[in-house]
């Protein structure tokens, strides 16, 4: 992966004002804190974390749905933050796409499937109606659906088939980068594998880059090249897949991997991690994981650990590795 990254995220911050402080006051919720990561062409970066980790917000920032409150994001060499935001987004929009978690909400129920797939083309302008129809049939075939599906409405398809339609729409403009936000977590296990395989095949065929957001570590292992672990808005570890799963370094990554149930009735699991993800309205000082960490040290309660290189290609934010 020596190639120049197509996605560069530097010190990304995101904060939302929310009502819900003491006395119904508006308070600032720091959803993301100083994220840094790159994605190379043809690479899949897995972004894992539990609810409230901010993984979905990060994905939405990368396709321009939210404007971050700090830091910079460069896509295909164009900045989509700060003063160049509008110009940058206009330049890269056709190369960005998004695949949603819930295939039932991702398609307009009143539009024919063909029109939904063709929508990005129609918005970008260009191509005649007949050209678009040809392209739609080609896309349907690409994702393993019959060509005559275009005339039907979303309710006539199963969940897995709808997810294929969403993927077809994402491919309509030949994008370079797709954010997949929990694309298989709403699907049945036997259908999940079909979609994961389809995404991998399409990546091979078109050299796509993915940000693959998921809470399911096993699915991420199947598709990602590198994995970043988020906890309460901060990246705690980034590593190539084999290293992360084979030798997790951050205590949270270890606990997370240990908590996943395995299809092995004889497995003896380690002690269960106690506690819950802290509120982002009043995050604990220092390392945000220190309230649950089995290796907590005094300085964890005061100093925020920086993301440091431990071995080439691996980054961990933990005082154990300082």
């Amino acid at each position: 992966m020596a190639a120049e990254p197509i996605i560069e995220v530097r010190d990304l911050d995101m904060a939302f004002p929310v009502r819900g402080g003491p006395g119904g006051k508006t308070v600032i919720q720091q959803v993301l804190h100083k994220l840094n990561f790159d994605i190379a062409p043809g690479e899949t970066l897995g972004l894992v974390g539990e609810s409230g980790s901010g993984k979905s917000t990060a994905g939405r920032i990368l396709v321009g749905l939210y404007e971050p409150t700090g830091g910079s994001v460069k896509l295909f060499g164009q900045s989509i933050t700060g003063a160049q935001r509008q110009h940058g987004l206009a330049a890269v929009r056709s190369r960005l796409q998004f695949v949603f978690q819930d295939p039932h909400a991702a398609l307009n129920p009143r539009m024919r499937v063909g029109d939904s797939i063709a929508e990005p083309i129609a918005i970008a302008g260009g191509r005649t109606r007949r050209d678009r129809a040809d392209r739609v049939r080609e896309l349907l075939e690409m994702v393993g659906l019959p060509r005559d599906g275009a005339e039907r409405f979303p309710h006539e398809f199963s969940g897995g088939q709808r997810q294929r339609i969403v993927i077809a729409r994402a491919l309509a403009l030949q994008p370079g980068f797709i954010v997949c936000d929990e694309p298989v977590s709403a699907l049945d296990v036997s259908i999940q594998a079909q979609i994961v395989n389809l995404l991998m095949d399409l990546q091979q065929k078109f050299g796509l880059s993915y940000l693959f957001i998921a809470h399911d570590l096993a699915v991420v292992r199947a598709i990602a090249h590198r994995v970043a672990v988020l906890y309460a808005g901060s990246i705690v570890e980034v590593a190539p897949k084999d290293e992360l799963y084979g030798d997790p370094q951050h205590p949270y990554t270890r606990a997370l991997l240990d908590a996943v149930p395995r299809a092995d009735p004889d497995r003896v699991r380690g002690p269960v991690l106690g506690g819950e993800v802290p509120s982002l309205l009043a995050p604990p000082p220092g390392c945000r994981f220190h309230t649950r960490c089995p290796h907590v040290m005094p300085r964890c309660r005061t100093d925020i650990p920086a993301l440091r290189v431990t071995t080439p290609g691996r980054h961990v934010a933990c005082h154990l590795y300082a």
Binding site: V189, S190, I191, Q192, A193, Q194, V196, N197, M200, D216, L217, A218, V219, R221, A222, K241, D242, Y245, L257, V260, R262, A263
Partner: peptide
């Protein structure tokens, strides 16, 4: 078709 956390990473059976 269940992705695994251990063992070699293989293409998922579907």
């Amino acid at each position: 078709s269940m992705p695994a956390l251990d063992g070699p990473v293989r293409r998922l059976y579907s």
